[in-house]
Simulated assay, not measured.
Amino acid sequence: MRPHGPWTRLRRGPVRVGRKSTTREPIIQESETYETQEPGAVEPEATRRDAGGAESARANRGWWDRNADEYQVEHGTFLGDDRFVWGPEGLDEIEAELLGPPEELKGKEVLEIGAGAAQCARWLAAQGARPVALDLSHRQLQHALRIGGSFPLICADAGALPFADGSFDLACSAYGALPFVADPRLVLREVRRVLRPGGRFVFSVTHPIRWAFPDEPGAEGLSVASSYFDRTPYVEQDEEGRAVYVEHHRTLGDRVRDIAVSGFRLVDLVEPEWPAWNTSEWGGWSPLRGNLIPGTAIFVCERD
């Protein structure tokens, strides 16, 4: 059972491509095929075990390619086509202004990492920004093409960004990439590299405290079931022991240290409260839990 809940499956992660291209055109291909789970197939085994960078990237790209269609059906209404939402609580960027006032986004070069169907990038474009949407999953980016938008879609690895140094003014990631990578510092350093001096990177992840609780929306999800300090990855694997989904846990202190060591300055840490209007319940997310324990942590970082 996931310690995080299905929202982390909202977005995204990495797949390796060449580095330091300056292209701003879509580079996704239409010829790839996707494995689908056959009816009656054995459900993956959920476990906690080590999983390295290559295994995590391979598993998560496959998971998102296989499940993108179902995901967009299930969560597309909540996300909208051009809404910038930071997490399941429903905190909207137009209200939070974590990237800055909307009127100041005009003309800014913005990289969205783990973009999924590029809802956030589409909102940024509507504010006059010049976004680039990057994701590991080809299938998710096909949904971005389906919805539309006049900005580049890049299928690439968050740990090897295919952009020149100092290409962007801002970067953002709403539940994208960082929960799924074995080495978050690699991603953070790459983001710092492609940002210009003074650039801001804002990213959200499942709040680390959620890893200590069962992934249940009701009262059974309010009692600590495992050690918060156990950083062993959560893995779903097939009958041969091959990972088909991987998520990595970092404590709150780990996240802060990762940010500092990677050359960023943490300027804010936002823990959204569950709003009264949000009556949604899915997986481990619910008004009951949301009103008692945080579900999302948003880190606002700046490059000096």
Rank of each mutant, 00 (worst) to 15 (best):
R9F: 02
R9E: 13
L10W: 12
R12H: 14
P14W: 11
V17S: 13
G18S: 13
T22A: 12
T23S: 15
R24Q: 00
R24A: 01
I28M: 04
E32T: 06
T33D: 08
Y34Q: 00
Y34S: 04
Q37W: 06
Q37T: 12
E38Q: 13
G40Y: 09
G40H: 09
V42Q: 13
P44W: 09
P44K: 05
E45T: 15
T47L: 14
T47E: 10
T47V: 15
R49Q: 12
A51Y: 07
G52L: 12
S56K: 06
S56C: 08
A57N: 09
R58F: 05
A59W: 11
A59I: 09
N60A: 02
W64C: 03
W64P: 00
W64F: 15
R66G: 10
N67V: 01
A68W: 09
D69T: 13
Y71P: 01
Q72W: 15
V73G: 01
V73K: 14
E74V: 10
E74D: 12
E74K: 14
H75D: 00
G76S: 09
T77Y: 05
F78A: 13
F78G: 00
F78C: 03
L79Q: 13
L79E: 07
G80S: 09
D82I: 04
R83G: 06
V85P: 04
V85N: 00
W86I: 05
G87W: 10
G87I: 09
E89H: 09
G90N: 08
L91C: 04
E93M: 09
E93N: 11
E93S: 09
E95V: 14
E95W: 05
A96M: 08
E97M: 05
L99P: 08
G100R: 10
E103Q: 13
E104R: 14
E104P: 01
L105G: 07
K106H: 10
K106L: 02
K108Y: 03
K108H: 00
V110N: 06
E112L: 06
G114F: 07
G116C: 07
A117F: 08
C120V: 12
A121K: 06
R122F: 03
W123A: 04
L124Q: 05
L124I: 07
A126T: 10
Q127H: 01
G128N: 06
G128A: 03
P131D: 02
V132A: 07
D135W: 09
D135T: 07
S137Q: 10
H138T: 12
R139D: 05
R139A: 14
R139K: 14
Q140L: 12
H143N: 06
A144M: 08
L145R: 15
I147G: 01
G148C: 07
S150P: 06
